[in-house]
Design a protein around this nucleic acid. Structure first.
Lengths: 261, 261
DNA sequence: CTAATAGTGTCTGTAAGACATTATATA
DNA sequence: TATATAATGTCTTACAGACACTATTAG
């Protein structure tokens, strides 16, 4: 059975959630946008294959948090026949796309909002006009994989410290808040957010430094706290031994933050 | 690449969480306990393969909620070479094990507590003595898969209506509470539990009938509410198009219940 | 009656959300 | 000075958890 990996690489850019897509240079779906990915090599781990394919098609050895999303197929997703795809989710600070590989042209960040029609029936911004934007349909079942990846990212912000994976090594509370606002698509009260974020145990570590140069009062800089030594009893500890070592701590107890309704 | 499915089938029996295991009749790990599973056939869906293997090795066409857990491998898990395993999680009311297949003898329910050493360092009941119980080590990486399945089940009870998947079609609030107590390993206040469970929207549907014959006041009977028509805005809806249609509704908002610390 | 379990009511502490105020930078 | 952003404080309300009480069966 042919086995591939696909990568849903998400970042926050201009206060909006973006996904890294490549333009397919070969059939099937030539010219369509697709998630970066490809076949797993013999004697290669899944996470290794995901990072390798991403590097090959974007030219970047990426930082960020990588985790397995889920497995799709094998039926009804590739016209050439049954193919299994183990999808991965990468949450990373924005990185430049350096290189367009041999079989993938125009790797670039795309706003997620433009790519997903909301399952709840919310019209996408391009759907109000009734026109389908050319080239916006994703190849294979990648639209569903993207939707699942975004859903996972949204859910994980709620109970984990993963928001820091979207930020540079040092960041302000406002940076972090903008991540939540972009991923959840909501507005959060900066004062209440600050109180919750700084009060959560095992989440943030002050660096002592502050921002400078901008307008207004300088903000304190933080980094992600080291992963907790022992998992919290009775709660999943969220380790992922098969993937790369977690770059940020896993599960917070109690849940960090919830989107207000 | 060889692809298999493995099934973590969980149930609540005698107020304790149990997993369905088979004794391996062939090498490798002949004689050891293992999760039911086997190779995916050509042109077979993953969920179909999981239910088929379970039926072949236990003789039962099972009810219950089946979902994909995660994918393991391909390296370092089978001495014969790289094998990918797509693990599945089945949550079901207890069903009798009818049949022992050709390559699997002695399919039976086993208490989960005896099989997992807690990652947090809690000694297992057989570990206090320092003795490893013979035959209790699972084949391959199935101990880790089991741990992940139990972790998933515990987490899902918190924010979904999945506890009903462990119960018969009609059940009492006390039945449901015993599910939470068994899976989480905690004691819950029956009065507060009843108030929360009956008050949660989209969770329970009274049948109008009550229990009879037992001692004490008869209890009202409930069934799982139908899945909500539209997903809650801003929350994952937890549909699983690749698997069988969900037998119980997916995500509840707000989260149903949390284990007290 | 007693025993046993089911279900409802009440209180209290904690915390989320709304919003005011103070602090510290640049222009 | 004005303006902009950061950080802390106050208040109200909702709800989780602790626990008293009532309801309905069997024996």
């Amino acid at each position: 059975m042919p086995v591939t990996v696909d990568v849903v690489a998400l970042t926050v850019r201009d206060d909006a959630l973006h996904v890294l897509l490549v333009e397919r240079g070969v059939e099937p779906f030539r010219g369509a946008l697709a998630l970066p990915g490809g076949f797993v090599l013999p004697d290669e781990r899944l996470g290794e294959a995901a990072r390798r394919e991403l590097a090959e098609e974007t030219g970047v050895r990426t930082p960020g948090h990588l985790e397995q999303l889920r497995t799709y197929g094998p039926l009804g997703r590739d016209p050439r026949g049954p193919v299994l795809s183990v999808a991965h989710l990468l949450l990373a600070p924005e990185f430049g796309v350096v290189h367009a590989g041999s079989d993938a042209g125009g790797a670039a960040w795309h706003p997620v909002e433009h790519l997903l029609r909301d399952a709840a029936g919310h019209p996408g911004p391009d759907e109000r006009t009734g026109a389908t934007v050319a080239g916006r349909r994703l190849a294979f079942d990648h639209e569903r994989i993207l939707a699942d990846g975004v859903e996972r990212a949204r859910a994980k912000l709620e109970y984990s410290a993963l928001a820091a994976a979207f930020c540079a090594p040092e960041f302000t509370i406002a940076d972090l808040r903008r991540v939540y606002e972009a991923v959840w698509g909501v507005r959060l009260d900066p004062r209440n957010f600050s109180r919750k974020a700084t009060g959560a145990v095992g989440f943030l570590e002050p660096t002592g430094a502050t921002t400078s140069g901008g307008t207004g009062r300088p903000a304190a800089l933080y980094r992600a706290a080291r992963p907790v030594p022992g998992p919290v009893p009775g709660r999943p500890h969220g380790q992922d031994p098969d993937d790369a070592p977690a770059s940020v701590p896993a599960v917070l107890d109690p849940p960090l933050m919830r989107p207000s309704r």
